[in-house]
Design a protein around this nucleic acid. Structure first.
Lengths: 215, 215
DNA sequence: TGGGTAATGTGAAATGAGTAACAATAATAT
DNA sequence: ATATTATTGTTACTCATTTCACATTACCCA
């Protein structure tokens, strides 16, 4: 079964789009509607669905409620997921307050920070000292964490998480982290994402320039 | 010339890694060192370099300073880039205060927000009312912006940016945006990034379970 | 000086992802 | 009842990316 990161990301996108369509009152959907909604091709949608066993009706398209149910099951949306965030800087706070997570069954249950001055056990999402991470994660059977700390601290935090039984991490520190073979590590490097935009804008600019000087 | 988003992102990663190595006192580097540093293969590194005309010395590896200079030129790091951020929520603030940008020649020169209560013209990075975006961006010849607003406002902000002459956007709103053909749009969906981690952790779990029940 | 070695640089092969094409089929119209 | 049409599901193809393999070359040492 094809389960590349990209195809899973597309399934999540389909799911989001389906909820929007349902909310708008639609009952059925065709492959090209979904393609439009997420910026893919109809072929791609049908292929993804084929791979994951999501079936529709010849001529009739797909029934939105059925699709949503199947996707929820496939994507493990039926039981809520509890995660923790390490680092309560801006990125950490952004994730703690991200409204989108609730909708998808993800709940940030605590944040951790080395700076004990930031400790706040009374907050809706408590901020705890980093030293308490291991015990907390073990007790609550936390399986997923977010690393939003400076790059110099990231590897150490990751190891703490691994020893606490965490199996997957979304990492925002702009550095390559070492982890065991079957650990799930997803890196997001905001700097590089932005630099990439800058690069392509400059490239476009150069190109336009060249065109002009050619004429 | 191959300039997929991925290969450009790798060039940026090489560059980051090289600065780290230089800082640590290294003068030369081999393809497998760099591969380790960014999590790729040595072949990949050499292929990328080959494509972009970065050459080393048979047996002697690559001279770090030379590589950095070439990469800086290739990636347009020689002149500073001024960008703006729209939305001064947590993600917006995270980008405004992102320490990594300065190092790579990217400067956030202003932020914009619909909520005029947040206006602060005296701050190091001023926060201005959204209505001033167009004039500001035109006057300062801003070419790149970041969208860090709720999804319902994102398309409108994008159009405002386009009309102000902005050519590329890094978008954090979890929704598909429509833009002209040659516009550079890079989407980062934090929700999906996190959900993907959760999915693969669950998949791992299921797999382990299945293995056990089989024996 | 010459042989051995450790690297690069690159064409070819393998893999992977996305697209296109079309046969199968269910709904609808005549 | 039959033809027509719209849409799925899947196979085959194309294109892009990654890996492999090895010829090439510079350096080192005897």
């Amino acid at each position: 079964m094809k389960t590349s990161k990209q195809s899973i990301a597309r399934l999540h996108s389909y799911r989001e789009a389906l909820y929007r369509l349902k909310y708008l009152g639609f009952v059925k959907v065709f492959s090209d509607n979904l393609a439009d909604a997420i910026g893919a091709t109809a072929s791609q949608v049908r292929k993804d669905f084929s791979i994951f066993g999501l079936i529709g009706n010849k001529k009739g398209g797909y029934v939105i409620d059925e699709l949503i149910n199947k996707l929820d099951e496939l994507l493990g949306k039926n039981q809520p997921q509890h995660i923790i965030v390490v680092g309560s800087g801006n990125i950490g706070k952004a994730l703690m307050s991200y409204k989108g997570f609730g909708k998808v069954g993800i709940h940030v249950v605590a944040a951790f920070d080395t700076d004990e001055a930031k400790t706040n056990r009374a907050a809706e999402i408590p901020i705890l000292p980093l030293g308490e991470l291991k015990e907390f994660a073990k007790q609550r059977h936390i399986k997923v964490g977010v690393i939003a700390v400076p790059d110099t601290a990231a590897q150490q935090v990751l190891e703490m998480m691994i020893s606490a039984g965490i199996k997957g991490v979304l990492n925002f520190a702009p550095i390559r982290l070492n982890c065991p073979e079957h650990f799930v590590l997803n890196n997001v490097n905001l700097g590089i994402e932005l630099e990439t935009v800058v690069y392509f804008v400059n490239a476009l600019n150069r190109q336009a320039h060249d065109e002009k000087s050619k004429s």
